[in-house]
Computed example of a mutant assay.
Amino acid sequence: MPFGNIPAALVIVAGCVLAVILYFAGSKIRTHLEGSEKGISRVIISALGIPAVIAILTITIFLALRYIADLPELAHQVMESTYAQVLYIILGSLIIAFFVRNFLDLYGKKIANLTDSDFDDKLVHFLQSVYGYVIGIGAFFMILSVLKIDITPLLATGGLVGIVVGLAAQDTFGNFFSGAMIAADQPFREGDRIEIQGVIGDVVSVGPRSTRIKTLDSQLVTVPNKILTENMLTNFALPDITLKVRISVGTGYDSDINLVKNILKTVAQKGIASGFVLSTPAPEVYFLEFGESALMFQLLIWTGMYDKTFEVRDYLNTEIYTAFKAAGIEIPYPQMDLHLKSSPVHI
């Protein structure tokens, strides 16, 4: 190694050691402040931690380059002040991004819970989704300004290209905007069971471009956010987790109507005792119509297991069948009577 490069090596070693010390010191301070009342201090330490390490390593490289002999001309250009300003902008953007993220994570929900309105919760969720894009775009335009790059000619000459690209990517941009709308409006949350265009399942994750749903068959379906905002969507978990379940059943025309109603009410009470049925609102039984082959009744119950409707229906149907069989009540099936008329045969 040339003698002139030894100081550069020492600078790199010293910078790496300082960066490691700073990283572990910051982690220890964050752990000490965890759960304390000094929340804003933890936000600042977290925001400065990683960017500060990056800044030290970058400064170390800049200083080491000054001691390297026969440094190429390109390296000297990199070390000019203009590029240093670009670096400052990048580091500043990282610090702001880390600060905003930690601040929203630590104080966002606390501030939103101070009011009864859910608008604050939606606003916090929206800010958590878009702050990175806003800071990134702002840093990009600041870098262009520092480099003295005028984007006006680019916009003028690239207008046609922009239109073509815009038309080709309109669905992609539409999905991103729809993702921002979902973040702001929150028609559903992760874990909610929803139905969209015939697909029923639980929301696994909500991304900026698409939403993933786990169907009742344990299949993962990726739905573009634009479809979720442009079509009618059913959320079984909102405004609460209660769900009305209708059990329709037919009995023979010779059945005792009052007896059938009492049996259905008794089944509903067993459902309440088992935990499948809620006592409030109370279960209801209706004699709806005279069917072609049966008298049609309907049992209406409410359940708090919106994600277990199959189990609820299975329990109630089994109990109804057992009770009807014990009481001698017939559950008819569609049938057709054929009447044949005989006529003399002429030869």
Results as ranks from 00 to 15, higher is better:
Asp307Phe: 08
Val204Gln: 15
Pro239Asp: 12
Ile196Gly: 04
Leu278Thr: 00
Ile241Asp: 09
Ala282Val: 10
Val260Trp: 02
Ile29Val: 12
Thr266Met: 09
Gly35Met: 08
Gly158Leu: 02
Phe287Asn: 06
Ile301Thr: 04
Arg101Gly: 04
Ala84Ser: 07
Ala273Asn: 14
Thr322Phe: 14
Asp116Asn: 09
Leu220Phe: 13
Gly162Val: 12
Thr234His: 11
Gln197Arg: 06
Ile95Phe: 13
Phe141Asp: 05
Phe3Asp: 07
Pro2Gln: 13
Gly132His: 01
Leu71Pro: 02
Ser205Val: 09
Val260Asp: 02
Val134Trp: 02
Val161Glu: 15
Met142Cys: 07
Gln85Tyr: 08
Leu278Tyr: 02
Pro187Met: 09
Phe99Asp: 06
Leu127Arg: 03
Gly92Phe: 02
Thr157Arg: 13
Glu311Ser: 07
Leu160Glu: 07
Val203Asn: 09
Glu80Tyr: 06
Ser274Gly: 01
Glu319Gly: 03
Phe290Leu: 10
Ile320His: 05
Ile263Ser: 05
His339Glu: 11
Ala184Pro: 03
Gly328Leu: 02
Asp256Thr: 11
Ala184His: 13
Pro239His: 10
Gly201Asp: 00
Pro334His: 07
Val267Asp: 01
Tyr23Asn: 05
Gly207Asn: 13
Asp171Ala: 09
Tyr253Val: 13
Ile44Trp: 08
Arg246Gln: 14
Ala326Cys: 08
Thr157Val: 06
Ala55Cys: 10
Met142Asn: 09
Ser218Met: 03
Val249Trp: 00
Asp185Gly: 02
Gly136Phe: 15
Ile56Met: 08
Val245Trp: 02
Ile241Met: 12
Asn262Ile: 06
Glu230Val: 12
Leu18Lys: 05
Phe173Lys: 04
Ile149Asp: 11
Thr242Gly: 04
Leu288Phe: 03
Gln197Ile: 04
Ala69Thr: 13
Glu80His: 10
Ser117Gly: 07
Ile301Leu: 09
Tyr286Asn: 10
Asp105Val: 11
Val134Thr: 12
Pro224Ser: 09
Ala156Tyr: 11
Lys109Trp: 14
Lys110Arg: 12
Ile21Asn: 04
